[in-house]
Write a protein that binds this DNA or RNA. Sequence first.
DNA 1: TGTACATCAGTGAACGCGCGTTCACTGATGTAC
DNA 2: TGTACATCAGTGAACGCGCGTTCACTGATGTAC
Lengths: 240, 240
Amino acid sequence: MAAIQTARERARADITAQITAAARRQLAVDGAPGLSLRAVARELGMVSSAVYRYVANRDELLTMLIVEAYDSLGDAVEATLVGAAGAPPFERFVAAATAVREWAIAHPHEYALVYGSPVPGYAAPETTIAPATRVTLALIGIIDHAHRAGLLEPPNGAVADVDRGVAADFEAVRDAVGAELPDDVLVRVIAAWTQLFGFVSFEVFGQTRNVIHHHAELFEATVGAVARLVGLVPTRSAAT
Amino acid sequence: MAAIQTARERARADITAQITAAARRQLAVDGAPGLSLRAVARELGMVSSAVYRYVANRDELLTMLIVEAYDSLGDAVEATLVGAAGAPPFERFVAAATAVREWAIAHPHEYALVYGSPVPGYAAPETTIAPATRVTLALIGIIDHAHRAGLLEPPNGAVADVDRGVAADFEAVRDAVGAELPDDVLVRVIAAWTQLFGFVSFEVFGQTRNVIHHHAELFEATVGAVARLVGLVPTRSAAT
DNA sequence: TGTACATCAGTGAACGCGCGTTCACTGATGTAC
DNA sequence: TGTACATCAGTGAACGCGCGTTCACTGATGTAC
């Protein structure tokens, strides 16, 4: 055992990777409902029952794809933030949001798999939770750092006091992610977070087709607007 | 012909309605991918081929469900706005947004059908466009009215000038819906619109499960925040 | 280094299922005279 | 009011398809002595 793999172990890891790769390719063509173990086997030149040596059943394959998708998106966003290490928070936030959008456009079916309609009859196991939170964690982290550095300037007309139930949810969120953001900022963070994915979903799912033709530019503008709502300010802001 | 129906025509309309009703029931259980003409026929006690007297094929049935879903949501939102006829724009906007959320929670699979992942291999025909725009029209209408009445007070830190391509898209939108909203407000309107559906999608699709337990209250808070971002102000605003 | 046995990967056939769609048909409902 | 014909609704059988999953099997790869 240990780190040294036997030939068999290496072959196993290799073929498992080939299976998920083939499944990902199929996902890109037919979407999640069309994913089939038989088609995966066919693409790899195996007999359909052979796949069962590597994957317990269809649902487990779906789970593997979900985890991969979350991790792929998480990698993309985290890499972007590493690249923007020195930048001020507004720019970091916009960069992270843009990374989400670009990943989604590059992987529409994987995006749909994790952020679209749930697959009927499939319940995601706990394995998917950790990878799912990476992006959210990154986004909140940017804002939390800005807050700790005293760089947050929420606009006037602030949010009214938050409902007690919501306050409890927020307390749990702060504990879970180690953030210090106050309730009124968290409301705006949730708004920004849902706005980001709402925009991306509309674009990727085709809701704005034939209406909006310049998505990239509009995205930047709306993300800028919600970033300011959160209290992030662009450097050398043109104010007004 | 004319308005008077023969018995046959009435029977035809009746059974067509039963077919879509059965399909809607199936949708609620198995989601769009599981919708099948044979199952619909079974539920109605017909032989599967009989359904083809009423529906050309599976895609046409899907289209009928999509149109019904959009219209059902449109009805709900418009009825809410009729009920809030005298109210000021901030309250009207929040009421309309809340109607969207409540409809979505009551009809999760119909919501997923129209706002979730696209059904692979299905292309929505033009018939679906008009009903699809009703909600958006209603939301923009509220803000446009407020603007014309001089009631819009966008927060400071306004949006930078909008990209030329986006400006062209906006011009077309203004023409299409007969609105007068300037570009910088439209950016915020798009942000509010995508935030609304982003929040609802996250809730309905289970993205916030185990994290947020008080969705209704949090929803109200975030909608309030983006409404203020657009420039709507609550009456007797507690300011700051 | 060599043999005996255990583990694992992949095969091929099969089970049972549900699906969309077509087609020739029977029988009831409508229409024209 | 009555008959002759056309229209339509619903039947039942069939075509061809793909799916998930199981199972007894062959043969290759690994392990222990």
